[in-house]
Design a protein around this nucleic acid. Structure first.
Lengths: 354, 354
DNA sequence: CTTTAGCACTCCAACCATGAGAGTGCTAAC
DNA sequence: GTTAGCACTCTCATGGTTGGAGTGCTAAAG
């Protein structure tokens, strides 16, 4: 939750806090600037609208609220949202009903580990009515577990590489002159003996050594080089994939009805690098992180917020789950959901490494 | 290209055809209703605007054009587009420069067969400035090629299933009491001996037989059941995945500036079943198929057109590539691109089965 | 019989003025 | 410190007006 904060050094008195909170909650509900009278009508603040106006003027002075124009109600600023979130974050816990529903969804696909992160994104999208994001848990540095060479036709074979953390990669490899499956098995056995348990770097040095030997079957060297490249690419990829679900939910928000803003947001999501680049930044964080509007350094993201958390085991394999929604989103709910889903994902990963 | 047609039994005379064509090309360019004067100015039709007006009135009568309102220019109807497409389709061929560029892109990832269809979608999106669609080539009925059991931790193993057509599936499987890798290898060997080359159905009957035998290791039966389920699910899935790229291109079209229509289109794409359901419909077609606006039975798709073609080998493995764009799209270009990309994909698949 | 010039007509889109309503900030009283 | 009251500001919806684009028709020309 911690994120350095230039503005709000001075804490607010209880009433200002209550008003800020009421403004935000009302604005999240209605998507329209909030006037003093509305607050008096709907929230038990115990003072008149004139007093509220004074308080709101102070909050605006302090940078927590703004005016779209003189005779309109107040709208929270990014700083306002942050203050609000920090004041409530520790107390957030998802309602038991929701926990149950989410846990139930996770019960379904216990074993297809490749699907976990998709499920996480879908669940989050469903629970928060915003877009759910998730990346698979990417191992820090992969180790080779097992290699397989399977003939798929007379002139091609499938090279299957199983990495220690459960990922599987596969490529086609052309066969020059009719190898049969038995020969392929031999080569696979040799490769396994030589490479199993090795990291990308270790494989690379080993391949170097091999390429000197003249007696080696061509195919063996070719396959070894492929394996080396696959592992190197796997390690190099910042994040293998960012899966998102429920983008439609975001499109439905009234602030995106003029498609210009929406388009910008999509542009960022389409280009997966941006979200990938967040993972290292999050790695050190303990709890859920919230990035509000302009706090995201990408200008395209100024109108949306991210609620993110890591999962997995530090130093072994880490992934990210989160919510992308309009800045005007229900943060308590989003934070609660993300926190809970990340804890579920933790359990799953732990089960994998136990 | 063939698609039954209620309206246009009677062929148009040359001049009407030329006018229809000019209206469509101008409308595709400008996105605005086309007036008679504009046509005279920009297209060498050799007659005055009054004559054009008469011709357009006839075309409207015949159902190929409409009016947004009395004093506006003409806009093509879906029927108009179809007439146009059918008159030009046979002559469409992609410019050599474009062929070269596309072929170049395909040269890059020759071997990662899992990525082919993504590349196809990306290429189509780039070439047409619309959204590219592609599904992987899905075998009609899969056969088991090879099974692998790899321990990933003390209590879990990774079950890797390689199918005959090059797909790889992977699942986690819990290990009750400390199997070591050698025992896993034994079980995998047994499974391979028993199941290799078998279809989902054959595997199922074999599993049934096995479940009677009392001496069998628990893990072996468990794995066998999993394999059976994975293969059954693979066969049952109408289409494994529909990958789309370049949705942003579609968002940029002016007709989608009010986000309502756009949202509807997205809703369909998000829900992959719709596109999947098109595959069987296409299977019988020889050439590129064009589905224009309301010809799509989904009401959400009324404002967009699909240009689709199959690739692969009938009876073995078929997939679909295509374009999704506004009804007002450049059909010659789209058809040319899709036709060419599908032929490239054919080459790739053939290479795989050769 | 076909083409074209001319013209009246239609309808949209943009512009402006107007007024109601929402909400503020300020002042003075409590 | 709080509140009632009030003047003030700004937006938004409404309605009337105008200019222009483009049509359909008619009558003349080819």
């Amino acid at each position: 939750m911690a994120r350095s904060q230039e503005h709000s050094a001075r804490p607010l008195d209880a009433r200002s806090q209550a008003v800020l909170r009421a403004v935000i909650e009302e604005y999240v509900r209605s998507a329209e600037p909030v006037g003093s009278q509305t607050l008096v009508d709907r929230y038990r603040l115990g003072v008149s609208s004139a007093t509220i106006r004074n308080v709101m003027a102070d909050l605006e002075e302090a940078g927590y609220l703004t005016h779209p124009h003189t005779s309109a109600g107040r709208v929270p600023t990014d700083t306002g949202y942050r203050m609000y979130i920090e004041s409530i974050a520790p107390r957030i816990n998802l309602a038991p009903v929701e926990r149950l529903m989410i846990r139930h969804q996770f019960g379904q696909v216990e074993f297809a580990s490749e699907q976990w992160f998709r499920l996480a994104a879908a669940t989050i999208a469903g629970a928060t009515h915003a877009a759910g994001l998730a990346t698979p848990a990417k191992p820090r540095a992969c180790k080779l577990r097992h290699v397989d060479l399977v003939a798929t036709s007379a002139h091609t074979a499938s090279l299957v590489v199983v990495l220690a953390e459960g990922s599987v990669k596969q490529e086609l490899i052309p066969l020059e002159d009719g190898y049969d499956q038995l020969e392929l098995d031999d080569i696979a056995r040799l490769l396994n003996n030589d490479f199993a348990g090795k990291s990308a770097r270790q494989v690379a040095t080993r391949v170097e050594a091999l390429s000197g030997e003249p007696e080696l079957p061509v195919l063996m060297l070719r396959a070894a080089q492929r394996i080396e490249r696959m592992m190197r690419e796997f390690d190099a990829a910042a994040v293998e994939d960012v899966f998102s679900d429920g983008l439609l939910n975001v499109m439905e928000a009234p602030e995106f009805s003029q498609s210009e803003k929406l388009r910008r947001v999509f542009a960022v999501l389409q280009n997966r690098d941006y979200l990938g680049s967040l993972v290292p930044r999050l790695a050190s964080a303990q709890d859920v992180q919230v990035l509000i509007g302009a706090e995201n350094d990408a200008t395209e993201m100024q109108d949306v917020s991210l609620v993110l958390a890591t999962y997995g085991q530090p130093g072994r394999a880490m992934g990210v789950v989160g919510v992308l929604g309009p800045t005007r989103m229900s943060y308590p709910h989003a934070i609660g959901t993300v926190r809970f889903v990340s804890s579920l994902m933790n359990e799953l990963v732990e089960q994998l490494y136990r």
